[in-house]
């Protein structure tokens, strides 16, 4: 999604009020932005703490500020600067973390960001965007720029098959329909599952919903989804994030405030920062039972349990 990010920012870069800071990253992706922005494109170097506080001070003066790094370096190293200098001052700094979740795969656990949005959402005045498809990136950038809050855009890579008909952006949108239970997946995982399950007969295919934002107010939850949760055999939420601070924990609290409870519930999430062996994002998802086969097994188990409960 880095190309889409570059394009989205490029389209805004004629705004002299916009400043972009990177923590020495962007090779083979952000050069067009660098050329376009001139001295408003700042390589702040390997100094994330300073970069965030500088960004805060610029935002305090009314600039539209973007900061970019690998997701794990962006939220964890300078967390206190994000909290004290950005969030406490309610400054609309826009954070872009590349390779969220297990995106950096075999690079190792130092490069994984499976607690990023949970940590950031403990702070006041924060919004989180997790684009599902390449086409979402421009919308996420626009929505982040328009927000009065600090924002975090977690970038991954689009995971649908070529030619997949991407539906228009929404915070929660339905990708597939069927009788195989309800699955909400956060970010690119939703595209992965939609592609993987497209060939299933409708009796086995789940209702897949894609979440592109994390903290959803009750009004953002479509009535159709609530009905599917109430009437279906169970709800599975899948995300490349640890359980604490997850989309699922927040979503289930919101459901309970509405008095909506699924018959069965399963949370497929990032289970560990590292295992005893290392591997790609696909490998690590499988280890965390986030691969399509494991998620499908969860959905199938809902039906079996429903039969047993009768």
């Amino acid at each position: 999604m880095r190309k889409q990010l570059c394009d989205a920012l490029l389209s805004r870069s004629s705004n002299e009020n916009m400043i972009f800071l990177t923590g020495d990253l962007g090779f083979m992706a952000l050069e067009p932005l660098q050329q376009s922005m001139g001295n408003r494109f700042i390589n702040a170097g390997l100094a994330e703490q300073n970069m965030i506080s500088v960004a805060a001070a610029l935002a305090a003066q009314g600039f539209e500020v973007w900061v970019y790094s690998i997701a794990s370096f962006l939220f964890a190293r300078p967390f206190e600067q994000i909290r004290n200098d950005v969030a406490f001052h309610h400054l609309p700094v826009n954070f872009i973390g590349n390779g969220g979740g297990y995106g950096y795969g075999v690079m190792g656990p130092t490069h994984h960001a499976i607690g990023d949005y949970g940590a950031l959402l403990t702070l006041p005045n924060f919004e989180v965007f997790v684009p599902v498809f390449d086409e979402d990136v421009n919308v996420a950038v626009s929505r982040a720029a328009a927000s009065k809050n600090a924002t975090y855009v977690r970038l991954g890579r689009t995971e649908t098959v070529p030619g997949y008909p991407v539906p228009p952006y929404d915070r929660l949108r339905q990708l597939t329909r069927g009788d195989g239970g309800t699955l909400i997946a956060v970010g690119p995982l939703a595209g992965l599952y939609a592609s993987a399950f497209a060939g299933l007969p409708i009796t086995e295919r789940p209702n897949i919903w894609a979440a592109a934002e994390i903290c959803l107010t009750p009004d953002a939850i479509p009535k159709t989804l609530l009905e599917q949760i109430l009437q279906g055999p169970g709800l599975c939420i899948a995300e490349e994030h640890v359980r604490h601070g997850s989309f699922a924990s927040d979503f289930m609290l919101r459901l309970s405030s509405l008095g909506v409870y699924p018959k069965l519930f399963h949370h497929s999430c990032a289970l560990a920062h590292h295992y005893d062996r290392y591997g790609s994002q696909t490998y690590l998802r499988k280890k965390s039972q986030l691969d399509p086969e494991a998620v499908l097994a969860v959905l199938n188990s809902f039906k079996e349990k429903a039969v047993q409960l009768r």
Binding site: Q49, I52, S53, V54, A57, L58, A60, D85
Partner: peptide, 9 residues
Amino acid sequence: SLAAGTALG
């Protein structure tokens, strides 16, 4: 850092 960002702005 806050001072530097202010000066840059």
